[in-house]
Each structure stands twice: as structure tokens, then as C-alpha cells.
Simulated scan of single mutants.
Amino acid sequence: MDRSLSTLTDTQRDLLREWLPDLHVVRDHSWGLVDNVVLEVESQGQRFVVKADGETNHHIARELDAHEQWLAPWVALGRAPRLVAGDRSAKIVVTEYLPGHLVLGSDAQRNPDTFRQAGELLAILHGQPAVIDASYEARENAKILQNLDKEHRISPELETELRGIVMGWPDEPVALVPTHGDWQPRNWLVHDGRISVIDFGRAALRSVLADWTRLEARDFREDPAREAAFVEGYGADPRESGAWFRERLREAINTAVWAHLIGDEPFEEQGHQMIARALNAS
């Protein structure tokens, strides 16, 4: 048995044998930081991607939600992979393989046209019917306070300040749309100059602003031309000051806490920088 497959459960391996006869692993794309497996595989002359969660991970359900409810416009354009098979209870999903290489760290990341295309694609996703949710802000605020209860390296004085800010935020209805949840170059592929999208393990209904925060944290800061191109592609700039501050600070706190818990020190440091920048801009 391939070592990459040995980490799967018996049920997951049985399903793969049923779905993809004569499967063999081409490449293991797993990060190793979280409890999941991402494999590029081949079966009967075709290439696929297999994603499977371990006991502590719950991303596959969101992957399947995205494929079943929101990705059809991208799939029709060839800009997202087609769902082949999946099983929520077994926590495994198979999609078609999209050609290309990651934008992250490539010349394409320095090309503003990449961000214009990314803006266009995001506008398509966000342009699907919205749902008005009167409890979204309260739920998100509660999550922040719960995260601050976890182990982290935010100073006690700053933690007290952050709790006060969050508890003072308004609770108002928000229009929720399908969001990717990790919208940045590490989840974009480029092939012959065309951008496509992968990894839907954080997809969910959220505010449109949720898909802007991670670009603001790094790529927009590195080159304003990327930001201008992204806004052009998206067609508008939805970053109203009050809501944008709340979304940025939530993302910053979540990043600092989560990265500490998984031991990713560079990402944790980015989270602390994001907190400082959000507070300075408030």
C-alpha cells in the first residue's frame, strides 16, 4: 500500500477502491499541519484529487456543501474542479484534477491581472442569492470571545482591550453570500494565464468582506496594484469602514489564536501584526 494511503481509514480506502479502480498516488499535497490528506492520484488514465479528513478535522462537509450548492458557475467556466464522488460520514471527497500550478510564490502572484481575474471570479461566487441573517454578527462575536478563552500569546492587556471592543459591537442584520473562506493565492491555480480555484474546506455563507481580509493582510500590502486590479475585477469596493474593521479584527484574532494552537509561528506572527494594523486603522 502507498504510504500516503496508509493514513486513511479503512472506510475511506474502501470507498476509493470503489470510486477509482487501480488508483495510484502521483503526489501528496498534504500540508502536515492539520489532520487531513490531499492526494493527486491517477485511475484508468485520468487524474483526480482526493481529500480526506481525520478525526479532528471537519472540512469535507464544507467541501461537499460548496460543490453541491455554489460552485456550478465556476465549474461551468472550467475555473473550479468538478465533483466526482464524496461521502460526508466517511469524510472523503474526490474531484477532477485541474491543470496548473499554485499562484503562491510564482510570477503570477506579482501580476496584477491575476488579481483582476480573482476579483471577477469572486464576484461570480458572491453574486448568487444572498440570505439576510439577523444573528450573524452576534455569532461571529461569540466565536471571537471563545477563541480568546483558548491558549494564545496575545498579551493580557491587549486581550482585555479586544474583549471590550468586541462586546461593544452592534448586532445588526447582515446579507450572507457563498464565500470561499480562504481567498488568497495559495488556493488559486494558474494555467496558460488563466486563474482557477481550489480548496473549499472553509466555504460557508458569510459577509462578502470575509473573502477580502486575507488579501488585505499580505498581497494588497505588498503591492497596491494588486488591490486596484482586484477591485476592478470585482466591480465595486464593499469595504464600509465599520463592518470592515469588525471583519478585519475578527480575522486577525482568529489567525493569532489558531496559528498558535497548531504551532505555525510565522502565521501566528502575521496574526499579531494584523491585530495591530486593524486597531491602528480603527
Rank of each mutant, 00 (worst) to 15 (best):
A61L: 01
A61M: 01
A61S: 04
R62D: 00
R62Q: 06
E63R: 14
E63P: 12
L64K: 15
A66D: 09
H67E: 00
E68V: 12
E68K: 15
E68R: 15
E68W: 13
Q69V: 07
Q69S: 13
Q69A: 09
W70F: 08
A72S: 04
V75E: 07
A76Y: 05
A76G: 03
G78V: 08
R79A: 07
A80Y: 08
L83E: 05
L83Q: 12
L83I: 07
V84F: 05
A85I: 06
G86L: 05
D87P: 09
D87S: 10
R88V: 11
I92V: 15
V94A: 09
E96L: 05
Y97W: 14
Y97S: 14
L98K: 06
P99S: 03
L102H: 03
V103I: 01
V103F: 01
L104P: 11
L104K: 13
L104T: 12
G105V: 05
G105Y: 01
D107W: 07
A108F: 01
A108R: 01
Q109V: 04
N111H: 09
P112G: 06
D113K: 15
D113W: 13
T114G: 09
T114R: 13
R116N: 04
R116L: 10
Q117A: 01
A118E: 09
G119Q: 11
G119C: 10
E120N: 02
E120K: 10
H126D: 07
G127D: 06
Q128S: 08
A130K: 07
V131P: 04
V131D: 12
I132R: 14
I132T: 14
I132S: 13
I132V: 15
A134N: 13
Y136T: 10
E137R: 13
R139N: 12
A142Q: 11
K143C: 03
I144Y: 00
Q146D: 15
Q146P: 00
L148M: 09
D149S: 12
D149A: 14
K150Q: 15
E151P: 00
H152E: 02
S155D: 11
S155P: 06
P156Y: 00
E157I: 04
